[in-house]
Design a protein around this nucleic acid. Structure first.
Lengths: 221, 221
DNA sequence: TTTTGAATTTAAGCATACTTAACTTTATTA
DNA sequence: TAATAAAGTTAAGTATGCTTAAATTCAAAA
């Protein structure tokens, strides 16, 4: 059975791979879930026995197709809740992650489908992440890169942001840097790996850490 | 700390008293929560130590004012979710109880207040139960009696129904007997304690069990 | 007042999901 | 290739919230 804890492990393993491109390791999952490494080893054994991940001791872990199905359902619920809270209740996009984090584990398929319908079967959540469909497919996403990897003098569109840190999003709101904003990379300092961008006639510098949470897509001109 | 389990115990103890007028006993709470009597004894000890109920072995249990505060918060979340699911998502009033039963434990005060605001700070849920206010007060309710206690030839209004049994509400929907319907008690059979009512030009007989889940208020004429 | 059956509590045990501490494996580097 | 540090696993223990079985208390009837 997929308990809340197991849903979170599977979701984390999926997201780790989706974000980094490589398989999740014990340490990485432990950091993400804020539990001990020992807890991961233990749970990995169980998830493996249940056929939800493939796991060889000391060799990292990977979702099986069954495990991925479960992960996608959880992620679907999370992202639909986020968008619903923004659209239906007017809650700020910096405030919905934590709520969705809990609601995602307590929402029947019946209810999440009603929410999906209410929203018109949307493709993206308020932070630009694709929302898995009921049938398990994932909407096509544009080719995105981290702002830290953007090139000087090129023009990009801000299309996605890590939703886990509400303070980060708060800052973006304060400076008026919202999803779908067009920006130009004005400068890159190799000294501190900061990136200077201009958007809406403003110019400002973003720290390396910041540019590693912001995803952009190239704009053709 | 108030875990999900503890929230459910407190809610059940509160509702038992509210419905029956007398304090909850071990057996009654166990039946309501579908757990063993032993589980109740154990939990009663813990809730008592935490100052949420007053409890003397073998003598039943009663919420303290702190326990009642917690119970009212849970009930507030439950009833607001029920109404919200009906109003915002068009979900049937026979389908919302189970969803609310889970969501009530995973909703921040911030979120439930947003829902409350969205709904215009309503006083009653879709089944006619009063919704506790943010400050812990309960809206004034009309003097209600069970349909089983209604008198022959008198006129009443259907104002509340036990929300836990979705099949019961399904039946009421099928026969078109909705909240706020006016009815007349046409007959009462002492043979099987059934009650015959007429409403909207229809006449039908309700079993004793049914009439013990339906609350009505007298209509002045 | 004693008996008896229902209600209740206690005791022992289990599953889940954590922890810390000790130990093992792996990968790197010197 | 051997040392070492980081990563990972195992072992033992904890808290929560259940279970069943046995023991106790209560209340009502004989």
């Amino acid at each position: 059975m997929a308990t809340i804890s197991k849903e979170n492990y599977l979701k984390t393993i999926f997201n780790y791979k989706a974000n980094s491109g490589v398989n999740a390791t014990t340490v990485k999952v432990a950091q993400d879930l804020s539990v001990s490494n020992a807890a991961i080893s233990e749970m990995a054994k169980k998830l493996s026995e249940e056929g939800l991940i493939s796991y060889k001791k000391y060799k990292g872990m990977e979702l099986t197709s069954n495990g991925e199905k479960v992960a996608l359902k959880v992620i679907r619920r999370h992202r639909l809740w986020e968008l619903f809270l923004v659209k239906a209740l007017g809650i700020g996009w910096n405030e919905v992650h934590g709520e969705a984090e809990r609601l995602e584990h307590h929402t029947s398929e019946f209810l999440i489908d009603k929410i999906d319908e209410y929203l018109g079967f949307p493709d993206f959540d308020p932070h630009g992440h694709p929302i898995p469909k009921k049938n398990g497919t994932i909407p096509k996403t544009p080719k995105v890169i981290l702002l830290s990897e953007a090139e000087k003098d090129n023009v990009y569109e801000f299309v996605r942001v890590d939703d886990r840190d509400s303070e980060l999003i708060n800052y973006l709101i304060r400076i008026g840097f919202l999803l779908n904003t067009e920006l130009t990379v004005v400068d890159k300092l190799s000294f501190d790996n900061s990136v200077t961008i201009s958007f809406n006639k403003k110019t400002l510098s973003m720290s390396n850490k910041l540019t590693k949470s912001i995803y952009v897509k190239a704009v053709k001109n």
